[in-house]
Simulated assay, not measured.
Amino acid sequence: MLRLFTAAVCLIALVHRLFWGLSSQTIAGRNFFAYLTVESNIALVVVLIIGGVLAFTRLADPRWFSISLSLVLTWTITAGLAFALIVWQAGLRGIRVDVPWSDQLLHFWLPAFTAIAWTLTPGHRSVPWWIVPGSLVFPLAWGGVTMWRGPMIGWYPYYFLDLRQVSGIGEFLVTSGIALAIFALIAAVLALISRISPAKAERRAGSGADPNAGGDSKRVSPPPAAGTAPAT
């Protein structure tokens, strides 16, 4: 239920942010779907809906779901950190940046809440270390499309990708490298967290024990010995 509720809140925040941006009548508002934050949060909605359905049908998450959610969380958390840095730098330069409630939810509250909830979920699986390099595939693909599209429309979703707004190719490469390093670091932290508290579901899946079985559960009595009558 928490997963489905979070997906609904995320979807509402995305819709609000879309119309809030369109109301500004700017090129940024018209390119709402070009932001990495928006794309990663759309992926979060899809993954959480799938996870909500899974939670109603099985006692433990399949490994592919834990991997998918950890990858999406890597992207949303890193996007939130980048957004916080942009707002902070804009404040230092005296540039006003309006942050509606939907932006606050998408960049800060939803990624943090989802990560905490996933960490505490007893049925989650540990994720492999290959998610660290794997988490870079989407940002690199997104960056390639953004750098190809930017010169054609004269706009970039983040200022540090625009060579006109940075000191040169050197600052662009350094900033992009730092961003990729943060993606990898967040993915490594999530992989480590998933292993610090091993999921109970993994041990039970191997032993075939019933996760819901408790000390007072019913037990099957052995058949009565030959020549004896069962107790009534």
Rank of each mutant, 00 (worst) to 15 (best):
W129Q: 00
H107I: 08
W142T: 02
L105V: 06
L73S: 02
Y158D: 01
S68T: 14
H107G: 00
S126E: 01
L73K: 04
F138I: 11
G134F: 06
Q104Y: 14
P151A: 07
P128C: 01
P139V: 00
F138N: 02
I131V: 03
L120F: 15
M152S: 09
R125Y: 13
F113K: 13
V87W: 15
L81G: 11
R58T: 08
S102N: 15
P139N: 00
P157K: 08
G134E: 03
M152T: 05
I86T: 10
G154Y: 08
L85P: 11
L106D: 04
W118K: 07
P157T: 03
G80P: 07
T121M: 13
I86R: 12
L140N: 00
W101E: 07
V137F: 06
L73G: 03
L120R: 15
L71A: 00
S68E: 12
L92V: 01
Y156E: 01
T146N: 06
F83V: 09
A117Y: 15
Y158W: 08
L106M: 02
L69Y: 05
V132Q: 01
P128A: 02
F113L: 11
T57K: 04
I95N: 08
A82W: 12
L81Y: 09
S66T: 11
A82P: 14
R58V: 09
W148T: 04
A141T: 09
